[in-house]
Computed example of a mutant assay.
Amino acid sequence: MSRMITDTQWLELLERRTKDPGAVATAYAARRRPQSLLDEHGMMFLVAADHPARGALRSGRDPMAMADRRSLLERLMVALSHPDVAGVLGTPDIVEELLLLGALDDKVVIGSMNRGGLDGARWTMDDRFTAYDAAGIEACRLEGGKMLLRLDNDDPACAATIEACARAVTELAERRLIAMVEPLPYERQADGSLVLQQDAQSLSRAIAIASALGTTSAYTWLKTPACDDPEAVYRSTTLPCVVLGGVPGPDLDAQVASWGRTLRQPAVRGLVIGRTVLYPDDGDVFGTVDAAAKVLRAVTEGPQ
C-alpha cells in the first residue's frame, strides 16, 4: 500500500492535536460539502471506519489490525482517493483526523452515533449513544448520522436502543439530515455467542421495526446486510437502502451474480464496506476498492 501520510504530516497532526484543538472546528467549517449524496446513477459508495469505537480492532487473522491509527488513516485516504467512493462513515475522532489531513473535501460524511455496545462485552447489545448526536452532526456540517440497531428478542437492553434510535431519527429529521439506521436481527446461541440472522423473515421484521422509528421517516435510510432472498426482503420498505458488501473477488462476473440480485432491487442505493476493503489479504486497498466499485458500476450501468 502506498504511503499517504508523510512523517512530517504525521508529526504535524500530532502537534495540532496537542497544541491547537481549535483546528478541528476550523476544519469542519472549511470542508467543501458534496453537491450530491448520489452519483450520476443514483447510487452511493461509502467506506465505513467506526469499528474501533466499539473496541472491534480485528480484521481477518490480525486482532490488532485497526489499532494502528496511522495505518487506518492511510488506508482510508487510499479508499477515498478512488473517484467512485462518495465518502466515509466514521466516529468523531476518525472524521476529525481525516479533516485535519485534508481528505474530506467534496466527500459525503456520515457521523456514527451509538458505539456503546462494546465488542466482546457481555452487555454488547446495549448499543447506547456515545459518539455524534444530531446537534453535533448539524453543527459539524455533516450529511447525516448512522445508528446501529441490533435486535435480540431475549435481551431487554434492546428496548432502550430502540427508543434512543427513534429519538435520534426524529432529531436528525428535524434538521433535514439523513438518519442511516442499521437494523440487524441477532439470536443468542447456547454458548452465549450472537449470530446474525440473514433469512428473509428476520431481516424483513428488522426493517419493518427500523422503518417506523421516529416522528417521520422522510430522512431515514437503511443499512442492511446482503441476503439470499432480496426480492422478499426489499419488498419490506420504500426507504432507500445501502448494502453491507462482501469481499470483492477476482471474478467480476461471479461477484456481480452474487451481489446482483440485491444491488438491482429498486430500493437499494449503494454499498457501505469497511474492513473488507481496508484490510484485504493482498494489501492492495485501492485495487480492492476498485473491484467493489466495478461491481457496483456493472450493476448500475448494465452490459457494456
Rank of each mutant, 00 (worst) to 15 (best):
M1I: 05
S2M: 08
R3M: 10
M4C: 07
M4S: 10
T6G: 01
T8Q: 09
Q9K: 03
Q9H: 06
L11H: 11
K19H: 01
T26P: 00
Y28H: 15
A30Q: 14
R32E: 06
Q35M: 08
M43G: 12
M43N: 12
M43K: 08
V47H: 02
A48F: 01
A48D: 03
A49P: 02
A49I: 01
G60V: 03
R61C: 03
D62F: 05
M64P: 02
A65L: 07
L72V: 11
E74G: 09
E74C: 03
R75C: 05
L76D: 10
L80M: 05
L80G: 06
P83D: 15
V88K: 02
V88Y: 05
G90M: 06
V95P: 04
V95I: 13
E96F: 00
E97A: 02
V108W: 13
V109F: 06
S112M: 10
S112T: 10
G116L: 01
G117R: 04
G117T: 04
R122P: 01
T124Q: 08
T124I: 04
D126F: 12
F129V: 00
T130N: 02
A131Y: 06
Y132P: 04
Y132L: 03
D133K: 00
G136H: 03
I137R: 02
I137D: 06
R141D: 14
L142E: 09
G144Q: 13
G144P: 09
G145L: 05
L148D: 11
L151Y: 07
P156I: 09
P156M: 11
P156C: 06
C158L: 00
A159D: 14
T161W: 10
I162V: 09
E163P: 00
A168V: 12
V169I: 08
T170S: 15
R175E: 14
M180I: 15
P183D: 15
P183Y: 14
E187F: 08
R188F: 10
R188G: 06
S193I: 00
Q197H: 04
S202L: 04
S202A: 15
A206K: 05
A208P: 03
A210K: 03
A212F: 04
L213P: 09
G214P: 08
T215P: 03
S217T: 12
T220L: 11
W221I: 06
P225A: 05
P225C: 10
P225I: 09
D228R: 11
D229I: 12
A232I: 13
V233K: 06
V233W: 09
Y234L: 13
S236K: 06
T237N: 09
T238L: 06
V242F: 07
V242Y: 10
D251E: 12
D253Y: 14
D253E: 12
Q255Y: 15
Q255P: 01
Q255K: 05
S258W: 15
S258C: 13
T262E: 13
T262Q: 14
L263T: 12
P266S: 12
R269C: 09
R269M: 11
L271N: 05
L271R: 13
I273R: 01
T276S: 11
V277F: 15
P280M: 00
F286A: 10
G287Y: 04
A292H: 11
K294E: 14
V295D: 05
A298R: 12
T300Q: 11
